[in-house]
Amino acid sequence: MTVQEIKEIMLTVPMIPDMELAVTKTVESLSRFIPFTGDQVDEVKHAIIEACMNAFEHSRSADCRILLVFKVGPCKLTVEIVDHGKGFDPALVEDPKIENKLFKNVRKRGWGLKLMKHLMDEVDIVSNRNGTVVRMVKYADAYRKEALNESV
């Protein structure tokens, strides 16, 4: 843990319908400690909903639970979504495009990962046959450019 990551909150949630909404309440509470705009809080909430839904739908986790670890820093929020499912290869996830889905007899779903990557500043996935850890970071606007330059 870095000096900036002064607060860490762990939350275990069962994979039951709408539990992702309960997680967004935690995001709202923690966001008071970070100079996020309202839109940024909203973006984090939507990204976490997508990460939870992916775990709920695809992980096939035997314990039917996910662990969320929130690390609150003065200028950023880091969230890890952990499941103990079968894992997947992120490189094999197709980048969805609306022109490949509309007016074609294909399933319209598969947008979760793309949305997470666009709504958050950083998304890293570590996955193997023992489970998956999705790590996502959002920087407060005032610190975003500086933080992203440093990480390059």
Partner: peptide, 11 residues
Amino acid sequence: IVNSIGVSILI
């Protein structure tokens, strides 16, 4: 609040 499954149905 929306999720991508709901939006896929809107597609």
